[in-house]
């Protein structure tokens, strides 16, 4: 059983619980989903960690995009915006298309960075090109992206479930 199948089972449990109530409402479905989540996380070890990791990642993204907007507002409304722009290559550890897409979208939503292109550098490595509004040291940018995003994504997608 992989995580996707267990999540599907959790959804079915939620729908069944919601359909057996007096009135069919979305909150009935949510109650069934939470109850099913509790039961399944007791049966399958590691499932709870994966789902909570996904929720934690979503909360982290919402927080960082609010910070990013305030930063952009600061640059736009300051009389003389001091910008130091540059494009940095970040070598990728993620392999699948889904992981790459999530990583690129996350980088675009977080403060000061936009992902431009997934390509190969001269050594043939798979790299992501990231545009920075305020750059500083390129190595520091690379280390921050690998530590902040790539490790979180890999922890969720490669975490796996112990049956």
């Amino acid at each position: 059983m992989n995580t996707r199948n267990i999540f599907l089972m959790n959804l079915i449990l939620g729908v069944v619980w919601g359909a057996l109530q007096e009135n069919i409402t979305a909150s009935g479905f949510l109650t069934g989903f939470v109850l099913g989540f509790l039961v399944l996380s007791v049966i399958y070890r590691g499932y709870a960690g994966t789902i909570l990791g996904i929720f934690g990642y979503i909360i982290f993204m919402v927080w960082s995009i609010i910070v990013a907007s305030f930063q952009v507002a600061g640059y736009v409304l300051s009389p003389q915006p001091k910008l130091d722009q540059g494009i940095v290559e970040v070598p990728l550890d993620v392999r699948s298309d889904l992981e790459t897409a999530i990583l690129a979208s996350s980088i675009t939503l977080t403060p000061g960075t936009i992902s431009i292109h997934v390509g190969r550098n001269q050594d043939g490595e798979r790299v992501l090109y990231v545009h920075n509004l305020v750059m500083g040291d390129p190595d520091e940018v690379r280390r921050t992206i690998k530590r902040e995003f790539e490790r979180r994504i890999l922890r969720v997608t490669r975490g796996g479930v112990i049956v």
Binding site: Y75, V76, L77
Partner: peptide
């Protein structure tokens, strides 16, 4: 902020920062 940003900021990438994040 995003509307003022795409007019004020100096080049196309910084305009994308304003138009992409603030408007989301």
């Amino acid at each position: 902020v995003s509307a003022i940003g795409i007019v004020r900021l100096p080049d196309v990438f910084s305009r994308m920062h304003a138009g992409g994040k603030a408007s989301t």
